[in-house]
Design a protein around this nucleic acid. Structure first.
Lengths: 219, 219
DNA sequence: GGCGCGTCGGTGAGAATGTCACAAAACCCG
DNA sequence: CGGGTTTTGTGACATTCTCACCGACGCGCC
């Protein structure tokens, strides 16, 4: 159970002494699916490194709509969390455990010390930032410039399981894209009419993956 | 000319030795208005601290549209620049000098050393990140959830000079908001019809600031 | 002054997206 | 099965986007 460090690409190259320090001084925490990892008024004291599960980070509007900003996967860290919420706790970004989650919590003190002593750890942290900021740029690009049908097709491809099924309500898909539920319903109907997907309550079955890919690529 | 450090809130508290190091080892550079500070294929080697002027950071779409992400003002740093472009050079985010710009360029080596040795400098860097990420969250929020007329009113208020005049073409305003030129033209006409602004080629004169503020606040 | 020429702004038509109000269908649980 | 909740469907209408085109303006040049 010590060896979670090896799962983090960027941390493998830390020297042994630091690895030991890291494992000794951070706690392993678990979070139930659906629990709030951080949110308005609950900024986390620690830097979280995800061992298992995924965390969805999303933003709310006053009108009750929401948009998914990015997901933190196992092997990644919640850096933005720590930094962003310094200045941003008034607004409503929050992190939700999408599955049961296991994570290593690094206390601020230890984080600080590692930043100071280890170039490898610094690189890890800055790479993490870089990754998240890229995600945010991508969201902005999509929102500003891409049509909803294309974004929906892309999202379905991203979220499908091995059987080609996406388990999500129209409402949830709308939140993924930051649009309205009705828009998603109508787009999905159009996809179904063309034989690309099959709809049932709470799930979308992809019938013609190639057609969806074409839509994404072509236009 | 040494004392530019004092202009940076977050750097004032560095100890004297580090301040000296910083001033000695960084170059002061100047950039003409309109020049590209960084862009696709031109990621900067240094961390820039803006002394005078402003840098506009924007993103392009294939369709030729663009959107302004944020502005870096005098007294602020281009941290995102450095980190984000590691992973993101394929896409088209770029920084443009909006005015003539003077900046201190901190070499990567010095940056690294300061991060390692100074808690104050670390705080400065992470605060800078925080600030930018907040800006990006804000852009996403606006794009996803706010109406164009409200965003335009807000932008006019933000960009006006002391005389209440905004010097910008409709095209430029459209780029600020990530929308199309025609949309801006029509909205501005509507504002003019209501007596809130007066239009002339290349500029918008605000005639009723309160009305614009009401629009922003109310809806 | 008059003539090009590029930039800027105006306009109509139609498509895409968002909003609102409400209804129907599917599911859940006692 | 009956009643309550969640999910999806639908029409009407507002807002925003796209495309195609045109006219107005500013500027340099003869």
């Amino acid at each position: 159970m010590q060896d979670w460090i090896e799962r983090f690409e960027g941390l493998k190259r830390l020297d042994e002494r630091l690895k030991r320090k890291l494992t000794q001084q951070s706690r392993i925490i678990t979070l139930k699916k659906g629990s709030v990892v951080f949110g308005p008024g609950a900024s986390p004291e620690n830097l979280l490194l995800l061992l298992d599960g995924t965390v969805r980070v999303q933003q709310h509007s006053e009108g009750g709509r929401e948009i998914v900003l990015y997901r933190v996967q196992a092997g990644e860290s919640c850096v933005l969390t720590t930094a962003a919420l310094l200045a941003y706790d008034d607004h409503s970004a929050e992190g939700i455990a999408e599955t049961d989650v296991r994570a290593a919590a690094i206390p601020r003190m230890v984080f600080d010390e590692l930043i100071a002593t280890s170039p490898e750890f610094r690189e890890f942290v800055f790479k993490s930032y870089s990754r998240r900021i890229t995600d945010l740029f991508f969201v902005i690009d999509e929102l500003a410039f891409r049509r909803v049908d294309i974004r929906l097709a892309q999202k379905l491809l991203d979220l499908q399981d091995k059987a080609g099924v996406v388990r999500a309500t129209h409402q949830q898909l709308a939140a993924e894209l930051g649009t309205a539920r009705e828009v998603i319903s109508r787009q999905l109907q159009e996809f179904q009419r063309r034989g690309w997907v099959k709809l049932s309550r709470g799930e979308v079955k992809i019938e013609d993956e190639d057609a969806l890919r074409d839509l994404v690529v072509v236009v």
